[in-house]
Simulated assay, not measured.
Amino acid sequence: MKILVIGAGVLGLTTAFNLVEDGHDVTIVDKAGPYAQASSRSFAWINANHKLPAEYHWLNRAGITAHEEFQKRFANHGTWFHQHGCIMFDSSPDKATGYDERFTESAELDYPVERIDSDHLRELEPTVSWPTDSGLFFPLEAHLDNEAFGSLVTGFLEEASVAPEVAEAVRVETNADGATVEFADGDTRNFDQVIIAAGADSGAIADRSGLLLPVADLSQPGPRTHSLLGVTAPTDVNLNRIIISDKINVRPRRDGSMFVQIPSVESRTEEGESPQLLDEVQAAMEAELESLFGERVPLERVIFSGRSFPEDGLSIVGYLDEHHRAYSLVTHSGMTMAPLLGRLVADEVRGDSSPLLKAFRPSRFADGVLSATPSTFIGRQ
């Protein structure tokens, strides 16, 4: 089949890769180019931690497994999936209750978790000046070198003579015979199927096409749609795994720098991006980093990043039209689930439906759209 993938972020690229492997004639477009938007600005914590309801947890859990398999399959290309686990700690007065609730929830879902004391914390990350004497450890979790992963998949596509085009798809019209796509430059092209994997732009494309795809509007900034991500300068501080807490989220990057988030400042995304906001957030991040590591770790920049957020907080995966020509692929957990969803979408194009996707079909919005605000649990991603 002749298939268009709209969006060259992590979801679009992995979907295109799987479609090419299945022998389809694939075109992939993105208005800003490959990996130019949210996928390059992701904290990329690969996890199924507190991702509820249970169906969503299991979808994310399968995403972790898909990453493991993808890394093993292409191990000769290097390492981009770092499964060293995640340390979670809480410094608040009611941390014991929070730990108990998270531990119980994880155990009920058979999601590996360990209670760890101060000795174990120091053993896992000796360079950290731990502000607590206890925490939780999630051994299945990982961080992804997102840019390395994107380059890898883009390279595989280019080897198959499928290079992402810089082009903006604005509208899709479907019928029993296929789909016609209109582009911003006035061009129109015909395809057998179209996969809409354009992140936060997916909702607008669907709306112009007369299709229902409820995605939060990026023009209204706030914690649902935006985040503040710090990037440190390369540092000698040795950090091996992700740390998630009520104070700071931090993870290593392959060049010796770190990604940083400060939960307490996320609400300030409602102010919109400004030089003053970024300067103040940078100061807050550097203060938390110094507190955590006992030495100054300067930031190179703070990124005000938009992200894809389905209105009810859950993935939207499936056909949008009666002719089964326009397919939606939108999720808030794209980094965790990209290898999985890319494969499942390609399977569905072939006619094989996955039970993992049953709860995430666009048809669930037929009776109205439910809007969800992200919960405030430690480590919201």
Rank of each mutant, 00 (worst) to 15 (best):
L4Q: 01
V5T: 03
L11A: 04
G12W: 08
T15H: 05
N18P: 09
E21W: 03
V29D: 02
A32K: 14
A36V: 00
R41Q: 11
S42M: 08
A44Y: 00
A44D: 03
N49I: 12
A54D: 08
L59R: 14
R61C: 05
H67T: 06
F74Q: 02
A75H: 14
H82E: 06
M88V: 11
M88D: 09
D90Q: 06
Y99L: 14
R102E: 12
F103A: 09
D119C: 00
L121W: 02
R122I: 01
R122M: 01
T127I: 08
V128G: 00
P139E: 07
L140M: 11
A142D: 06
E147F: 12
F149V: 15
V153D: 01
F156T: 07
E158H: 08
A160V: 05
S161W: 05
A163Q: 11
E165C: 13
E168W: 04
A169G: 06
A169P: 02
T174P: 05
A176I: 12
D177Q: 03
G178M: 10
V181K: 02
A184P: 06
G186Q: 03
D192I: 10
Q193L: 13
A200Y: 09
A200P: 10
A200C: 09
S202V: 03
D207Y: 10
G210F: 01
L212Y: 06
L212N: 13
L218D: 02
Q220A: 11
G222S: 08
T225W: 03
H226F: 02
H226S: 07
L228W: 01
G230L: 13
V231L: 15
N238S: 15
L239N: 09
I244S: 10
S245T: 05
D246R: 07
R254D: 14
G256H: 07
S257P: 14
M258L: 15
V260R: 01
E273S: 07
A284H: 03
A284I: 09
A287H: 11
S291W: 09
F293A: 07
R296S: 13
S305G: 04
R307F: 05
F309S: 11
L314R: 07
L314V: 11
I316R: 08
I316S: 08
V317P: 02
V317E: 05
G318N: 09
S328I: 10
S328R: 09
T331F: 05
S333Y: 06
M335W: 05
M337H: 04
V345H: 00
V345A: 03
V349M: 14
G351Y: 06
S354L: 14
K358T: 14
R364C: 13
V369R: 04
Q381E: 13
